[in-house]
Design a protein around this nucleic acid. Structure first.
Lengths: 228, 228
DNA sequence: GTCTATAGTCGGATAGAC
DNA sequence: GTCTATCCGACTATAGAC
């Protein structure tokens, strides 16, 4: 019951923040092993010894990077996801007009992801996440539970409403994942995409072309007259 | 004009091969920087100094790994691709019966990829290739020119025939890439997939469910009545 | 072609002054 | 909280015997 808050809680936070920002860049470019604490400290223009002081070591900084990314994601897509969740809660299935509204929501979601995955700033942390997908550590756990599961849940719910299927079924889950895959490929297989499309960058025009193709695909997949 | 072939051409090749096989595993698991030549030599049960002797160093071994992968790919999917190329060459567009035959060819292709990407053996080199996609080096160049471009070309041709579009158009290329993405996601976002599906492994049953979903999606995408 | 031994470099962590 | 200086372990590459 001390009146003073602990001194350590009054970290300037600028050093921590600067280090995390630099770490995303360097870890993203070189991976955990390839990145040296010296390189990160240099990029942040901060003394190398401060990494151990603030994060307890290289691994601590790595984990802090994922906490930071999860925070940004939550902040950026959280409201959008929440809005869709609200829509889904108020409206019942079976309404014909609702189908096109749900489809519009799904298009908005994929549009957002395309914008994110084609942006230059996403390059660094996309590399980080892709690496974690192959070799999941504590960092991935954080990201999945705090962010990915929620987004996938919303996509599943939208798919289920549009197709009239069970949101929990294997079929619905797989369909949701293949929709994600159509966006993901443009970051995960970026080098192949650039060569195949003969693109130099992914600017607004390119992002727009991607969006349109995915709109068309998703609409076709979810509104087909199928023989199940 | 010496009668003797050079001594160096008579490498036992077993050491080279063993090293490459071990290198795929270790490089795949840890990346270029994370993998130590000691660990690779140990895994191959070969003396560490032999890496420099046979490949000129760690980088040389890394490149040799991609040459090896490109070779295996060419050997494994080369015939299948060649068969489809032959079909495409003999048959003209516009034939209604040909459409379903082309669709069947495409399904065979995606089935093959699903089998490949859900297999355990693909884990190591899939990691390698995904890493190269984010940071392309000489190794990616090899893989793209010798293998990926050819496969993407065939997919494009099939898509164009089925939809009646120009194989070289942006639209056709993007559609081909989104088809690849639907398969790729199951390797590139493996950790998220396993969690989302509540799977422990990707065995025959799981692979089959994936195949069916992709069949349905691809058919819907390519055979829809669209308003272009 | 394969081995041992080691040179030379670089990385992460920490002690201790300020 | 931040700095300098340094320890110590791990790494790649190579010299040289066999």
């Amino acid at each position: 019951m001390n009146i003073d808050t602990p001194i350590t809680a009054r970290h300037s936070d600028s050093t921590r923040e600067t280090l995390i920002r630099a770490a995303i860049d360097i870890f993203g470019r070189s991976g955990f092993d390839g990145a040296s604490t010296r390189a990160i400290a240099d990029a942040a223009k901060v003394n190398q010894a401060l990494i151990s002081y603030h994060f307890g070591g290289k691994s601590g900084l790595y984990l802090a990077v994922f906490e930071h990314i999860a925070g940004i994601m939550q902040q950026r897509v959280g409201p959008i996801v929440a809005a869709i969740e609200a829509e889904l809660a108020t409206e019942q299935a079976g309404d014909a007009a609702a189908v096109s509204a749900r489809l519009a929501s799904l298009h908005r979601l994929t549009d957002g992801f395309v914008a994110l995955l084609t942006s230059d700033e996403s390059a660094a942390w996309a590399s980080l996440i892709l690496r974690e997908q192959q070799n999941p550590s504590e960092g991935f756990d954080l990201l999945y539970t705090r962010f990915m599961s929620r987004v996938l849940g919303v996509i599943r719910a939208l798919v289920a409403r549009i197709r009239g299927t069970d949101p929990a079924s294997v079929e619905t889950r797989l369909t949701a994942l293949t929709i994600v895959g159509q966006v993901l490929v443009f970051r995960a297989a970026r080098a192949a995409v650039m060569r195949q499309m003969e693109w130099q960058t992914t600017g607004p025009d390119e992002a727009n072309a991607i969006r349109q193709t995915i709109h068309r695909n998703v609409t076709a997949i979810l509104t087909q007259k199928d023989s199940r």
